[in-house]
Design a protein around this nucleic acid. Structure first.
Lengths: 343, 343
DNA sequence: TTGAAAGCGCTAACAA
DNA sequence: TTGTTAGCGCTTTCAA
């Protein structure tokens, strides 16, 4: 690895000059010198030592992507279609902007915070943080942060002086629309399937409840299909859900993958979707398109969400203030084949 | 951000001592001093500056994961089920070993090489490299490298003095088995679907040809279903494949996703799988299980492959020499629902 | 337009 | 057992 110093020595000039032409600080350097340096740089195939650069310049060109995971989940978080799709959108922008993406996956916030600080990460993308966690990150980090799909109270948000944006989705309204559609198409006995009671899924649950209430349909806690999603339990649990579904006309699922798995489990029990049971998913990820029957779902622009998030982050890194500290995207009901009109 | 120097000053000792206890170089430091330092470290929440550490120690704790991508591909590489699954296996090991994973996605080898050098990456995981590219990387990099799914000639391999392993799969034999199964179940008019003619898919193609030949079945270049997989063309192209499939009894697909997409496209044209057409996939990724009909496929232990790759890499990073420079895993035919017995 | 030199925070060889 | 110090490779201020 050839260093700036060596180059400077070889060319009989100072490291400053070399550094200047490397950074295109033209105007500081005469054209001839520039050319000479550039040629030599090319010749020896100079590559900067990023650690040295980061240390001296006190930044890292790293964008940290923080994903809180559940260690025992049946699927690695990177395999979740929603995650891989949104990461794809982000990765492309990060790379093309000349930055690097570093994944911080953990179920321990304190650990993540330490790592982010250690790397001197320039900005942070936070996924599915809980209210107070987000604030904790910001208090410690004090650099640009964009949250994705984080439910954060007005009050909490006001404590992020600036360099903070939250990007979300109208989860409540989207779910309301989906469940209302189910009701409109003649379903009354409608279940809600999820593997947790927090954040996004909790809000979706509220949308479900509101749709039910508005249609004068009662709700009992039994209507919550609570999936156990650990490696050990998922399969058995999904079977139970399918069994339970026999008593229902429709099930709203918090993700397309769960919808797809439910359809499979049902089929194995001789419950036909949509003939015996209607199913709707959420997100419009790849599996919902591939499923047979294809899955009626709530579409959201996942890649676009990722791109928006990272673009806002870069904006803040450049020192510009975002116009708003919260952007809520609109979902859209996508009618495919997994819901049957019953009347 | 509090530094070692500040800590040393505050505690009235040298940076070496502080550094020593940070690195658990016990034996060098008296118990009392250790405790004193540790307490203070805890108190101020010391976090090392990784850039400084990397610069001084001349390593990075970064594992580079290099994936060559095709810019115009219909799907971001991270969304490919095989990729996300194997990355999941790798990420977990990397994280738990106290390293960091950095993704280098690009279609430009030279660019990747520069980045890897710039970051002073400790080891490299290379995916689907072409023969000479792999060598090029090694010549320049000269640190541990593990290739995954790379077809590399004996001759080329011998040029990597050491710190090199290739992990692959018996692609030829796997495909041979799948196609033979198709033949055994009464299919003779069998297509081969892929989006390229290189590397892994080329070897699979050879397995396909051999199975055909061994059964005395002729092959014409028309039997190669060449999918155009760009964003613009994929849909139209898949439709064409489905149309073409009308004249076939079975199609072997180089990935589960393609198998799944083909099944969908066929269904839309009224071609029923497996009744009118048998389909087999490859890899046994999630979509093959979710598909309806579920897809008969060649199973391989993807997560295990990733884990094996990274574990071997760490072994070399620790300075141990791998026993062998090539490990070829065995695939397994997994019979599900997408193939019909025709006789 | 160019150069000298300090310093980013840490490690490690060496001295005490 | 502890301390001094010279770098690691780069950026940047300030002087020439």
């Amino acid at each position: 690895m050839v260093t700036i110093k060596e180059i400077a020595r070889h060319l009989n000039m100072s490291t400053t000059t070399v550094s200047n032409v490397i950074h295109g600080k033209t105007g500081e350097v005469s054209p001839e010198t520039q050319q000479k340096v550039r040629n030599y740089l090319e010749e020896v195939g100079y590559v900067p030592n990023i650690n040295a650069r980061n240390l001296a310049a006190n930044h890292s060109n790293i964008i940290g992507v923080v994903i809180k995971t559940r260690e025992d989940h049946y699927m690695h978080i990177l395999s979740e279609p929603f995650v891989s799709e949104i990461l794809g959108g982000i990765e492309e922008v990060v790379r093309k902007t000349g930055y690097y993406m570093m994944l911080y996956i953990s179920d321990d916030m304190a650990d993540i915070l330490d790592k982010v600080a250690a790397w001197n990460t320039d900005g942070l993308l936070l996924f599915w943080m809980l209210d107070d966690d987000a604030l904790r990150v910001y208090k410690r980090f004090r650099k640009p942060v964009v949250c994705v799909d984080t439910y954060i109270s007005e009050e909490t948000r006001s404590q992020f002086e600036n360099s903070f944006v939250n990007i979300g989705l109208e989860d409540e309204a989207g779910t309301y629309e989906a469940v209302s559609y189910l009701i409109k198409t003649g379903h009354r006995k409608i279940g809600f399937l999820s593997d947790n009671h927090e954040g996004v899924d909790l809000v979706r649950f509220k949308g479900y409840r509101r749709a039910l209430a508005d249609a004068g349909i009662g709700y009992s806690s039994k209507d919550f299909f609570e999936l156990r999603s650990t490696k050990e339990e998922i399969e058995q649990s999904m079977k139970k859900m399918a069994e339970k579904a026999k008593k229902y006309e429709a099930v709203f699922c918090c993700s397309d993958v769960y919808a797809s798995m439910l359809i499979n489990a049902c089929e194995r029990k001789g419950i036909l979707v949509p003939d015996d049971l209607s199913v709707v998913g959420f997100d419009d990820t790849f599996p919902s398109r591939l499923s047979r029957p294809s899955i009626t779902t709530i579409h959201q622009d996942i890649t676009g969400k990722g791109r928006l998030a990272i673009e806002l982050l870069f904006k803040m890194i450049r020192g510009e203030k975002p116009e708003t500290d919260q952007i809520i995207m609109k979902p859209e009901l996508l009618i495919r084949e997994s819901v049957k009109k019953r009347k």
